[in-house]
């Protein structure tokens, strides 16, 4: 009989987590979070997040209250960063440190339901030759994502690098999530619920209706998210 201890294996695995970094005053920050969540409905919906408290020192009861507040918003906090380990006991999520911006992690492509791919060597770009359908979430932190079709309303593509969409962007595109401020988003037709680059975001309400239906690129200029119609040089010459 095989010995039982061979069954026990400890495996290391890296994941990409979204980080919430509250700033004082907390009430204002929570208010902004609510506005954000309302605009991009369902974005958090039980998506696990890490709470980085380096900008907001809290006492233990305050921290417990904040975690409860987030839970009430359907945002589960799975770990905390940037606090003294004394603050956390077993009733609170564990302390974590040494996080790197997502780009260096070896997290997988989590393509929509049951589409996870096995890859022999690490590619630095991902090509999607089918539309990204409502309810699907494509996460690729190693580089650029190219979508030949459209991204539906209620679907999302999250990339470490830039995102190129040859169809219509109706859902969400989050580029540069590994801390790459140079990432850009390009789409042939813009009708997005949300675009974000390295943490800076704009929702449908923030974007001028002029852009709707046009080819658009989005990029980050210092601390602002810029969006502009892509005018081809051929057209410009006319």
């Amino acid at each position: 009989m095989a010995s039982n201890c061979t069954r026990f294996r400890l495996v290391g695995r890296s994941y990409v987590l979204f980080v919430l970094m509250p700033e004082p005053p907390l009430a204002v920050w929570l208010g902004e979070l609510d506005v954000w969540a309302r605009r991009s409905h369902g974005f958090f919906d039980r998506r696990p997040v890490l709470l980085d408290l380096s900008k907001l020192p809290l006492s233990k009861p305050e921290l417990a209250a904040l975690i409860a507040d987030l839970k009430a918003r359907n945002i589960p906090v799975v770990a905390v960063e940037g606090v003294d380990s004394q603050l956390l006991d077993f009733t609170l999520p564990p302390l974590i440190h040494g996080g790197r911006p997502g780009g260096e992690s070896d997290a997988d492509t989590v393509a929509g339901p049951a589409e996870t791919q096995d890859r022999p060597c690490e590619p630095t770009s991902l090509l999607l030759d089918k539309p990204v359908r409502s309810g699907q979430s494509i996460v690729f932190t190693n580089g650029d994502v190219t979508v030949l079709g459209s991204i539906s309303s209620g679907a999302e593509v999250i990339a470490g690098g830039s995102i190129h969409i040859y169809g219509t962007l109706r859902g969400r595109a989050l580029a540069g999530v590994s801390g790459n401020a140079d990432a850009r988003i390009f789409c042939a037709k813009f009708d997005a619920e949300l675009v974000a680059i390295d943490g800076l975001y704009a929702t449908a309400n923030d974007t001028t209706s002029y852009l709707c239906g046009r080819p658009v690129q989005a990029w980050r200029d210092q601390d602002s998210l810029q969006m502009r119609e892509i005018v081809s040089s051929a057209r410009r010459r006319v």
Partner: peptide, 10 residues
Amino acid sequence: DRIIGLLDAK
């Protein structure tokens, strides 16, 4: 759209 995604996956 959601159902089409499932037809392509499940």
